[in-house]
Design a protein around this nucleic acid. Structure first.
Lengths: 190, 190
DNA sequence: GTCTATAGATCGATAGAC
DNA sequence: GTCTATCGATCTATAGAC
């Protein structure tokens, strides 16, 4: 039987879960060891740079995942509205209707941001650009597309936060629906 | 000359700053001692329950501050639009155009939420209710007022997060402006 | 590559002098 | 009330056996 953890990448989901739930400072090597099933020796074998390297790898992994599971379907859809719909479905699933926090967003709020500031900023810049491109392709003027894209990303992050705080997944899904409708309206008017 | 820290309340701003920046787990007693100018002995004199009691006191203090500095002007303005304007000005100043994180929002995203879940939820419920009341007073139907109020609170939180992540205070102010405009439009149509 | 043992630092919290 | 000293626990990281 194959080992459960054969390479570095296999540890990333467990790592992400612990970091997301406990933050960088709160994610102890004990918690990480339990979540990944790896001892200290193995963890430092895969991540010689310790927690910092683990965190960087997780951020990278999330960015890669969004690239293929969210931005690609958004850009490659035959039609802007279909792309937006695909993005929203992926977002709702990934964030579990707002009950699963956005690790990158949460880290941007505190001092954890500093060592990873550029990764965090790049993630959001990329997301905004991906939406903006689709809106421009749909005939919306560039400046307006920028504002709409920022509002959507900001709106999704706010909805995660509020939906989690109020323990109300319905609030997240309803907000996603209204954001989608706003983009459709803007596209219809363009 | 009077002591700088004469009572528990005097330590709260320093405590809030450390908790906001480093999170609950990352806020060590060393950092807290430096920020407040208090030794361990004094801290445990004022907060016998340790970090948990400090955190609870900070959450309480923030809720009280919002009550008088944000919700009261919102409710007591002669006219709904003036109340909303007063709220937005207070919010922009308090969150320093999005460069200062919302401690309560950030804590809701991680495991720190658990011991304080009710305080966190109550803060956001109260904020939403305060806006909703003003909108209803302005003639907006209750269900619509709920959605608008949720969108505003969620939008503010998302704008803090995105504005901090992108290090762009202008994004926060612009988003506040658009949220205000949406409420004005809804009020004008009511 | 994975383990245990442990170093060395720091953690939250307490005790007792003043 | 405030301090210093210090406890035991836990932390990150390393070392070395297998």
């Amino acid at each position: 039987m194959a080992r459960l953890i054969a390479e570095r990448a296999d540890a990333l989901p467990g790592l992400a879960e612990v970091f997301r739930e406990y933050g960088f400072a709160g994610a102890s090597l004990s918690l990480i060891g339990t979540a990944t099933g790896l001892g200290r020796g193995s963890l430092y074998h895969f991540f010689p740079g310790g927690k910092n390297e683990m965190a960087a790898a997780v951020l990278d992994d999330i960015a890669t995942w969004f690239e293929q599971a969210v931005f690609a379907p958004l850009a490659e859809a035959a039609e802007p509205r279909a792309g937006i719909e695909a993005m929203m479905v992926a977002v709702d699933r990934y964030f579990q209707s707002g009950q699963r926090a956005c690790l990158i967003g949460a880290w941007g709020l505190g001092a954890t941001r500093d060592p990873f500031a550029e990764s965090i900023a790049a993630y959001f810049r990329r997301w905004i650009a991906a939406i903006q491109t689709v809106l421009i392709r749909g005939g919306i003027e560039e400046g307006h597309a920028t504002i709409l894209a920022q509002d959507v990303v900001s709106g999704i992050q706010g909805a995660i936060l509020l939906s989690r705080a109020l323990n109300d997944p319905g609030l997240f899904r309803a907000t996603l629906g209204r954001l989608t409708a706003r983009l459709y309206t803007a596209l219809a008017a363009a």
